[in-house]
């Protein structure tokens, strides 16, 4: 019976995302969407995936990670290289296939980075873990600042700190990736959101997900029933990194120029803000917060110079409102199915 309820909840979830997508698509075809908002659609998808995947680490697994943008950048750069290489090696014309494969490559490389970083980092807990993930995020950014990669006749050349490479430079050190063919589309972004939701929601409602949450709630009790803590913390961390890498690839291939400086500490914090605002452990909240807060700066253009001030005020107000017990009780009444979600995700703090 319980199984059914969670499955129904998930189906409702996919349904809402699909409806939102259909509305957006019909607005585009009817010409009812402004140009600037249309340009925001792919970044919105990217940030939704980033927020949902970070929520897996912060909310479900209970580790405060401050280096999420690092995995995004690994995914972005490896995705760009993969897309360029496929074009040059196989003369692959189909943009959709190229983008999907680039996203897979981005996810794989970010996953590898997740394993490499996870091994030392997951020995730590709490504040220490937060600080070390922050440091690793910065390390990734600085390393990518010195990387030169070129593609020539279907071969990939790699150099550190020296741009003397044959062929066309794809990644040009501090100047980042230039001349990227923009192949990201809103439709693929939407598919990525569905995929992320599918992975995260199904993971939470499975044996592995329960083990991850058990490690979060009580380490000692989880060990006493034979759960390998390291394995499940790692599983959550790497899954989250893979999804961030895929989002990164989508993001990277959405702009003609991407620099490593874009994926700095501020981006990590921005994604964390989405997660905290939406409610830690609450997947739905992450999606809504990521959407609204990505659109908000655009909508606030009317305030011109005071734009970021208003943005900050809105953030503070939302925090106050969502944390008041009265509003919580109100939401619990309005959204009856949310109670189940709360039981699942819980409050990690």
């Amino acid at each position: 019976m319980k199984l059914k309820r969670s499955t129904v909840n998930n189906l409702i979830a996919y349904g809402i995302v699909i409806v939102a997508f259909v509305i957006c698509q019909s607005m585009i075809s009817a010409g009812a969407m402004s140009r600037s908002l249309r340009g925001q659609l792919v970044p919105i998808c990217v940030y939704i995936v980033m927020a949902v995947s970070l929520n897996l680490t912060v909310g479900i697994s209970g580790e405060l990670s401050l280096g999420h943008a690092g995995f995004m950048s690994v995914g972005a750069f490896s995705g760009i290289v993969a897309a360029t290489w496929m074009e040059s090696a196989f003369a692959m014309e189909n943009d959709v296939v190229r983008l999907l494969l680039a996203m897979v490559v981005g996810g794989v490389f970010a996953g590898i980075a997740g394993v490499i970083i996870g091994v030392p980092v997951l020995r730590l807990r709490g504040d220490y873990l937060a600080i070390v993930t922050l440091a690793f995020g910065e390390i990734i950014r600085n390393v990518l600042n010195c990387v030169y990669i070129s593609v020539d006749a279907g071969r990939v050349y790699f150099a550190f700190n020296s741009p003397q490479l044959p062929g066309k430079l794809v990644i040009n050190g501090p100047a980042g990736a230039t001349g990227v063919s923009r192949i990201s589309t809103f439709v693929i972004g939407f598919v990525l959101i569905l995929f992320t939701l599918f992975v995260v929601l199904n993971l939470i409602n499975s044996r592995s997900g329960r083990a991850i949450m058990a490690c979060r709630d009580s380490r000692i009790a989880a060990e006493s029933v034979g759960i390998n803590i390291t394995k499940y913390r790692m599983m959550a961390f790497v899954t989250s990194a893979v999804l961030a890498g895929m989002a990164g690839a989508l993001y990277g291939l959405n702009y003609s120029t991407v620099t490593a400086a874009k994926f700095d500490f501020n981006t990590s914090i921005l994604v964390l803000v989405f997660v905290v605002l939406g409610g830690i452990g609450n997947i739905w909240g992450s999606i809504i917060a990521a959407t609204l807060l990505t659109v908000l700066p655009e909508l606030l253009r009317g305030f011109s110079d005071y734009r970021m001030l208003v943005y900050a005020v809105v953030l503070i107000l939302v925090m106050l409102v969502t944390n008041s017990p009265m509003m919580r009780a109100f939401f619990a009444r309005v959204l009856p199915h949310k109670r189940g979600e709360e039981g699942k995700g819980g409050e990690a703090a």
Binding site: R207, R210, A214, I220, A221, G226, G343, K344, G346
Partner: peptide
């Protein structure tokens, strides 16, 4: 030391972790 946010059944299921196993992959892709 119960897993207080989870249901009673989920607590027992966590106890069954190694008794009724399946991998992460089967879990995600149902």
């Amino acid at each position: 030391r119960l897993f207080g946010n989870m249901s009673v059944e989920d607590n027992v299921r966590i106890g069954l972790h190694n008794q009724v196993p399946y991998g992460m992959f089967s879990g995600i892709f149902r």
